[in-house]
Design a binder for these strands. Sequence first.
DNA 1: AGACGTTTGTGAAGCCATGCACAAAGCGAG
DNA 2: CTCGCTTTGTGCATGGCTTCACAAACGTCT
Lengths: 224, 224
Amino acid sequence: MSADPTLRREIPDATVARLPEYLRTLTMLAEAGVASVSSEELAASVGVRSAQLRKDLSHLGSYGVRGVGYEVETLALEITRALGLTQDWPVAIVGMGNLGHALASYSGFVTKGFHIVALFDDDPALIGEQVGDVTIRPSWDIEGCARELGIAIGVIATPAPAAQTVCDALVKSGVHAILNFAPSVLTVPAGVEVRRVDLSTELQILAFHAQRRVGLPSPAVVQR
Amino acid sequence: MSADPTLRREIPDATVARLPEYLRTLTMLAEAGVASVSSEELAASVGVRSAQLRKDLSHLGSYGVRGVGYEVETLALEITRALGLTQDWPVAIVGMGNLGHALASYSGFVTKGFHIVALFDDDPALIGEQVGDVTIRPSWDIEGCARELGIAIGVIATPAPAAQTVCDALVKSGVHAILNFAPSVLTVPAGVEVRRVDLSTELQILAFHAQRRVGLPSPAVVQR
DNA sequence: AGACGTTTGTGAAGCCATGCACAAAGCGAG
DNA sequence: CTCGCTTTGTGCATGGCTTCACAAACGTCT
C-alpha cells in the first residue's frame, strides 16, 4: 500500500547476481511452451532452494499467485525490467586479440539487450579490420568517439599492463560499467561498476579444491 | 601449539577466492625487486581492507613479522602451497569454437601450475587440428583417454545443450573440478567442484547497475 | 637494557545472506 | 458458500563473512 511500483527498491547484490539465471531458465520454459511454474520447480532447474528464489523475487514485487505459482511470461518480463534489459545497451570491446575476437563473435552477446557498437585495438595490423559489421578503431580514439556513440558498457580484453589506461579512457568518455578480462585490479572513481573475469583465478580456485581431494577415497566420495 | 602445520585447515571459500589476487600481486612485487611488504600496502594494491588481508592470511598460518610486515617471497610460496600450485595440473578443454581456441592459446594459462594436455570437439572439421602442440580429439573419446591422461580439471566451452553430456563424460573419467563457460547449470555428484563463467550473466548484472544510474546527476556522482 | 613506535594476529561486534516454518491467499470441489 | 489443498510471501533464527580495535611481538634507538 505504501509501496510505489515505480520506486527503485534496494535489491541485494546477491539477488541481482541470480536474476540472470532465473531469466535464462524462464526464457527456456517459455520457448518450451510452459505457461506457469512453481517456485519449487523453477528453483530446482536453477539449482537453488525454493525459499531463496521466493525471497529473491519478493524484492521485485509480488508477481506470483498463491496456490498456483508464477506465470512464466509475466515473471520473465518483470525480471527483464528489473535488470534494465527493456532497453538496448551499447557495448564496446577494447583489445581484439584472441579473446576479443571470440567475444565479438559470441552469439549469446546479442541475445538480448546488448549491442556491440565499437571495437578498439592499438595494433596497426588490426585497425580497420571488419568483425561482423563493426570496424576496429584505434584505441587512442576511445575518448574521441566513445561518448558520441553512447557507449554504456565497456569490455576490456587487453593485456594487463594496458587495462588501467584503457579503463581511464572509457571512464572519461562517460562509461560507468566495465567488464574486465585482464588480470589486473582497476582503480575507478565512485559510481563506476567494475566486474572482473579472470581465467587463471578460476583455475587456481579449482586447483585448491582439487588438492583438497588428494588422499580422499576417490570413488566413495564421488557418488552419493 | 596444538596446531599441526601439515594439517589442512578449513579455509573459507571467500578467502580462497582472494588468494589468487594476493599471489598475483606478490609475484609482481617480487619481479619488481620488493623484498618486504606490509598488510596495508598489499591490501591497497589488491583493493581490499588490510584487516581482511590479515585475517585471510592468518588461515594459512603465521608468516608475517610484527612491526615489519611480510617477506614477499615467503608469502608467495605459502599461498602457492595453499592453493595447490606446487604441482602441475593437467587441464582439458572441450569445445574448440572461438572461445575454446582463445582459451587454448591464452598465454596466462601456462603461467603457473597448469598444463593443457588435451583438446576435444565433436566437429569432424576440427578434429585433428593442431593447436599449440596439442591435437584436437573427438569428444566421444573423452571417457577413453581422459583418465589415462590424468586430467584433473576440465574446461567446458561448448554450446549450452552439449554441456551436461560433456560434463558427465568428464566426471566419469575421474575429473573432479570443472570450469563451465556454457550458459547452463550443470548437475554433478557430490565431491565435484564446478565454477561457472558466463559473459551474458556478467553483462546483465552490469546493465542493472547502469540502469540504476539513469536519472542520476552524471558528473556529480562520478568524481568524488 | 629499556623505552618507543610499528605492524601483526585475533577476539568481539556488526552485517548480510541463507534457510526454516508458518500465516495469508488463492483455487477447485462438493 | 464452505472446506480443504496448494503455494506464495515473510518474520525469525542461524551461520558466515567483514570490520573494528587492541594486545602481543618485533626492531630500533638511546
